[in-house]
């Protein structure tokens, strides 16, 4: 089979339709593992911020996880805060700068294990912030331990036989909890396991930020992201594994949109 030359742009007349990276990334380099879903989710957020004209009007509050390294490459004003506390830090900043789009970037360990109080109280107060949850059901940064969001049966480094509800408890479905509270304006769950769901997730993120711009209350966009390393599966099998495990506990779609019901 013939191979097309892909080392330089084509000579025949053509338009570039997609660049290597969104403009709000300073470089496409990162050290996340092969098959990780987080870079794609972060790319979507940055693209949405630019689309909505928020590039010079946003601050990211980043939690602790693999995604944290993007603080060095995301070209937005950022702080990397203490583990789990992003919604609190975002609250302080947003209350003082109400016209800046303030968003948190958190993993499930950050949001549902260490920082459950902060996300729930920020929701209860109806803080006008957008929280992006990258949910892979595992502490990826430390090598694959159970979080509060690990699903039943999930093998992690400290649930070697799989998470057992009678021993390890049940996963916290934070999206549903936040949606049930009056302070939330928008809650949705997307995924980055294939091109179609990536496109759909971009729309969810966009709505999440729009609700903040409209000052409707807290928006939470949960994104299921692959962590083949933390799941002990081959990189190429991450997408399928995710939808067979996490995808069953965390169904995709919009959970709440107060604007839609108006």
């Amino acid at each position: 089979m013939s191979i097309v030359m892909t080392t330089r742009p084509p000579e025949a007349p053509s338009n570039k339709v997609a660049s290597f990276k969104p403009t709000l990334l300073q470089t496409e380099e990162h050290h996340l593992c092969p098959g990780c879903g987080e870079p794609v989710a972060i790319r979507l957020v940055l693209e949405v911020i630019e689309e909505l004209g928020l590039a010079q009007k946003n601050v990211s509050i980043i939690g602790h996880g693999c995604y944290g390294s993007f603080i060095m490459t995301m070209d937005v004003d950022s702080t990397l805060c203490l583990h789990g506390r992003a919604p609190a830090v975002a609250t302080g900043l947003k209350r003082m700068r109400p016209d800046v789009a303030v968003w948190t970037l958190q993993g499930d360990g950050d949001m549902t294990s260490e920082g459950l109080a902060e996300i729930l109280h920020a929701t209860a107060r109806g803080e006008n912030i957008t929280c992006i949850l990258l949910n892979n059901g595992v502490f990826g940064d430390t090598g694959g331990q159970m979080t509060a969001s690990s699903v039943i049966g999930q093998r992690t480094k400290n649930t070697l036989e799989g998470r057992d509800a009678t021993y390890h408890g049940h996963p916290i479905v934070i999206g549903d909890m936040v949606a049930a509270m009056p302070g939330s304006a928008y809650v949705a769950r997307g995924s980055v396991h294939n091109a179609a769901s990536i496109a759909a997730t971009r729309r969810l993120i966009r709505k999440g930020f729009q609700r903040q711009v409209e000052k409707k209350g807290l928006s939470l966009v949960e994104i299921l992201t692959m962590c083949p390393t933390g799941w002990f599966v081959p990189a190429s099998g991450g997408a399928d594994y995710m939808m067979e495990s996490l995808g069953k506990t965390y169904p995709l779609g919009e959970i709440k949109d107060i604007s839609a019901s108006e």
Binding site: P9, P10, A12, P13, S14, N15, K16, V17, A18, S19, F20, K21, L25, E28, H30, L32, P34, G35, C36, G37, E38, P39, V40, R43, V192, N194, A195, I198, A199
Partner: peptide, 14 residues
């Protein structure tokens, strides 16, 4: 869209 490492640049021929 799916690439986590941003290695693709895409062109459409006229």
């Amino acid at each position: 869209q799916v690439c986590p490492d941003f290695v693709f640049e895409v062109y459409k021929y006229h």
